[in-house]
């Protein structure tokens, strides 16, 4: 895979009146071309600062920012402005020109690049089409809903044909339905236009809906990075666990360590991919003399990957139970014995 964004040893400190506030510490992060990478953290964790370091809206105190192999921190102002045109950005509060129509807002970056009027008009028309706002092109932002404003923001960010789209809490000011439609649009942009997306959010739902990989931030540091499914199913850090537990269908396996069930062996089984829909558990148990009871379970989707988690209690002889566990493992399921 081709690495598109690389943050190396980033620190960011602010000078407050009488002390130094550390916003980012020892950040190392790589984002590959074509992926949707999410950064999740509580407010104040430093995720917004991290995102702003990528296009140097915030200049890191230490460290390098490589975008497409180019070290942005070493560039002069004029060169940096040129590089920034390759990095689109959308914002929580949209940040549209209130005095410009939808059309003029989308045309804005093209006007800054001094493109000929004809080219601008054609480009704007196709972007309006892409985000589904052709009907509203003559309206002003104050006449639009939040979701429509964010669509204008997206169209504007895409106007200069960027390789990267940075999303700063892009759905945090929107209601759940609108959030879903905006996330769908972002996913489309990622797959159809091949634009790499780096987003920050405090909602695990956003990560789960569209991200391929995720980094969890806490107090200015990245505490965990990995494929979304891995982090979701087996969070390593306490903060990650808290985020995962916020999503409704996560399983709280700790409840089964003590007391629940009727004395059999309790297993946590994780299914990934198409296997999720296969009768794997039944087939495996059937071959032995054991039986099972499902104590808790969920089958869902992470972006486009189906997954399932089951907590089952196996009843039967030790030999039979061992055979079931071995059988499940050999079919590629992840099995952990809770008790």
């Amino acid at each position: 895979m081709f690495v598109l964004i690389e943050l190396i040893g980033i620190d960011k400190e602010y000078r407050a009146k009488d002390r130094i506030v550390t916003a980012l510490q020892h950040i190392n992060l790589t984002v590959e071309k074509g992926e949707i990478f999410g950064v999740i953290g509580r407010s104040g964790a430093g995720k917004s600062t991290l995102l702003r370091c990528v296009n140097l809206l915030e200049r890191p105190t230490n460290g390098k920012v490589l975008v497409g192999g180019q070290d942005l921190t070493s560039l002069k102002e004029g060169e940096l402005q040129k590089e920034r045109k390759r990095i689109g950005m959308i914002f929580q509060h949209f940040n549209l020109l209130s005095t410009a129509t939808v059309e003029q807002n989308i045309a804005f970056p093209l006007k800054l690049s001094k493109l000929p009027k004809k080219e601008i008009a054609a480009k704007v028309a196709s972007l309006l089409e892409l985000v589904g706002l052709s009907q509203h092109r003559k309206q002003y932002p104050s006449q639009l809903s939040g979701g429509q404003k964010q669509r204008v923001g997206i169209a504007r960010a895409l106007a200069s044909d960027p390789d990267i789209l940075l999303c700063d809490e892009a759905t945090s000011a929107l209601d759940p339905q609108t959030t879903e439609s905006i996330l769908e649009l972002l996913k489309d942009i990622n797959t159809k236009l091949g634009i790499t997306i780096l987003l920050i959010t405090h909602e695990m739902g956003v990560i789960r809906a569209i991200c391929d990989r995720v980094a969890v931030m806490d107090q200015g540091e990245i505490v965990e990075v990995g494929d979304v499914l891995d982090v979701f199913l087996k969070p390593q850090h306490e903060v990650s666990r808290q985020f995962v537990s916020e999503v409704a269908d996560s399983i709280d396996s700790s409840a089964f360590y003590n007391g629940a069930g009727s004395g059999g062996r309790i297993l946590r089984i994780i299914f990934r991919g198409e296997q999720t829909y296969e009768p794997v558990l039944y087939e495996t148990v059937k071959e032995t003399g054991a039986t099972f009871a499902i104590l808790q379970g969920t089958v869902s989707r992470m972006k486009d990957t189906p997954y399932g988690q089951l907590v089952v209690e196996l009843r039967g002889s030790d030999a039979d139970v061992d055979a079931v566990v071995g059988g499940l493992c050999s079919r590629g399921l992840e099995v952990s014995v809770l008790r």
């Binding site: 920034r84 914002f91 940040n95 549209l96 209130s98």
Partner: peptide, 15 residues
């Protein structure tokens, strides 16, 4: 003037 709008323009590579 909304600070965010200035930031957006900056992010677009405006001088």
């Amino acid at each position: 003037v909304d600070r965010g709008v200035q930031e957006a323009a900056q992010a677009m590579g405006a001088t």
